[in-house]
Design a protein around this nucleic acid. Structure first.
Length: 480
DNA sequence: GCATGATCATGC
DNA sequence: GCATGATCATGC
């Protein structure tokens, strides 16, 4: 069987992309197999030439054991035929293209999303404070990516059996770069302030400082503080990559509306100023201004979307940034009436988790919140007070939420204690009074809406709640 | 008045 | 049918 000679021009991104599209519908093991057949044919002026000894190693499979899991390396060496480097230049440095191999997944409803964040470059805390965005290591390496998307399936045990679905060059849009630059500066400013140890993925919108270490115990030096910090990498959030996948790589239906900013003002400042134009208006007035039924669900957050020019409740920037909108109502007495609920957990799954990679911990670590705050005035009229972007501070997460989470797990492992009196399940989960920050309470249709406990008994579905008093303490003074 | 457990209403 | 946001009921 004659192999067709295929090659690419190392100076031309488009040519690299065209050649890379030959990967579509192949598994990584197929790539390796076909490489062994066609390796002689890769030659000529416009291609990377594989050296004799390298070729021999491929055939002997000497490297395969060691690098079995490194899918990026397979593509680099077995398809593009260049030695992978770990220097600061992009992989295809003549063309300024960085190769990224990344998973996507199919959801139950048939849609697809990025399986994880896209890690770009390690943050060198000592170096990054001396660099500028445009000329710094991160952007030099990341401004033009060649994305190779493979379909992750939990039932596939060997990583090399994953199949490549999409291949595309990618560079963020101008609008996105404005936000990515803001994100970059937020991260660098925090390091300059000696707070690298307090970095959080939810500090920023599309570009985040993602934890990147072999174990959660590893720490690095930071330049403006003696406190060691977790190693972190610049990464595009999975929410951002999901949007990229569904709008640039596989153009979709476009159900999201953009919050059109009219300036280079920081995004969040722009949003806050827009909301504040309606400060003091009653919910009733606002509902009629924006033609919203007073009975509809989420009226108070929908008002915020209308103010921002969104006719539905799907804002592009919020989706990309993993920002969750929460309406908060403060009573006449200055207190928030309700605690804030989160998705229910399954008892038997919760006990299998570690805190550092827990569902609830990760949710709080990775989610940025947009609080829209209303307050009842002396006449019991609910009026808009303003808004605030928020994510949980590092210390509250690790020293506040963590003990409650761990106590919940340990209670479940030791066997939940409860008794039923008057149809109520009195139990020993962490109570609101036990922690300043959060507690466990039912969140179900009714007491018959249950999950199975580790010991086989059924118990009403529960979730973690953030205490209303804690939320209040996090609000800016002018909102209270 | 508030903590705790239970449940409702809406929308997908 | 279920998730999510919102609210209720009881007892201290």
């Amino acid at each position: 069987m004659a192999e067709e000679l295929q090659s690419y021009n190392i100076y031309d991104p488009k040519s690299i992309e065209t050649y890379a599209k030959g990967l579509i519908n192949k598994t990584f093991s197929q790539v390796i197999k076909e490489d062994q057949k066609s390796i002689y044919l890769i030659s000529g002026d416009n291609s990377h030439i594989v050296s004799e000894d390298r070729y021999d190693m491929h055939i002997a499979g000497k490297e395969d054991k060691k690098n079995k899991g490194n899918l990026g390396q397979i593509i680099e060496e077995r398809y593009f035929h260049y030695k992978c480097n770990s220097d600061s230049r992009p992989d295809f440095h003549e063309a300024g293209v960085e190769l990224k191999v990344t998973p996507y997944k199919q959801n139950r409803d048939g849609s697809i999303s990025a399986k994880e964040r896209l890690v770009l470059t390690m943050i060198d805390y000592g170096q990054v404070v001396n660099e500028k965005f445009e000329t710094g290591h991160f952007w030099t390496k990341s401004k033009l990516l060649l994305l190779i998307y493979y379909l992750y399936k939990p039932e596939i045990k060997q990583r090399i059996d994953y199949k490549i679905g999409f291949v595309s060059l990618f560079t963020p849009s101008k609008k996105d770069i404005v936000i990515i630059r803001q994100d970059y500066n937020i991260i660098v400013d925090k390091i300059k302030a000696g707070k690298a140890h307090e970095l959080s993925e939810a500090d920023t919108m599309y570009l985040s400082a993602a934890p990147k270490a072999s174990s959660s115990k590893v720490r690095r030096r930071q330049p403006f503080s003696d406190i060691p910090a977790k190693p972190r990498a610049f990464a595009y959030k999975s929410s951002y990559m999901t949007f990229v996948l569904n709008n640039y790589i596989v153009p979709g239906k476009g159900t999201y509306e953009s919050i059109e900013t009219d300036s280079d003002k920081p995004f969040e400042q722009y949003v806050a100023e827009k909301i504040n134009r309606y400060k003091g208006r009653s919910v009733e007035e606002l509902a009629s201004t924006f033609d919203l039924s007073k009975k509809q669900k989420n009226l108070e957050s929908n008002i915020a979307f209308r103010i921002l020019g969104i006719t539905g409740n799907k804002a592009e920037e919020f989706a990309k940034a993993n920002i969750v909108v929460k309406a908060i109502r403060i009573g006449k007495n200055g207190k928030i009436k309700e605690n804030m609920s989160f998705p229910t957990f399954k008892f038997k799954e919760l006990i299998k988790e570690d805190w550092d990679d827990s569902t609830f911990g990760n949710y709080l670590r990775e989610t940025r919140f947009f609080f829209v705050v209303y307050k009842y005035d002396d006449m019991d009229v609910l009026r808009l007070k303003g808004c605030q972007f928020w994510n949980i501070p590092y210390d509250d997460l690790e020293n506040g939420v963590r003990p409650v989470w761990e106590k919940t797990v340990s209670i479940l492992k030791n066997g939940l204690e409860f008794e039923i009196r008057d149809g109520k399940h009195y139990n020993n989960f962490p109570k609101q009074t036990e922690s300043y920050i959060c507690h466990v309470r039912p969140h179900a249709q009714n007491s018959k809406d249950t999950y199975e406990l580790p010991d086989g008994r059924q118990f009403p579905k529960q979730c973690f709640w953030l205490n209303n008093t804690y939320i209040l303490s996090q609000l800016n003074d002018e909102l209270k």
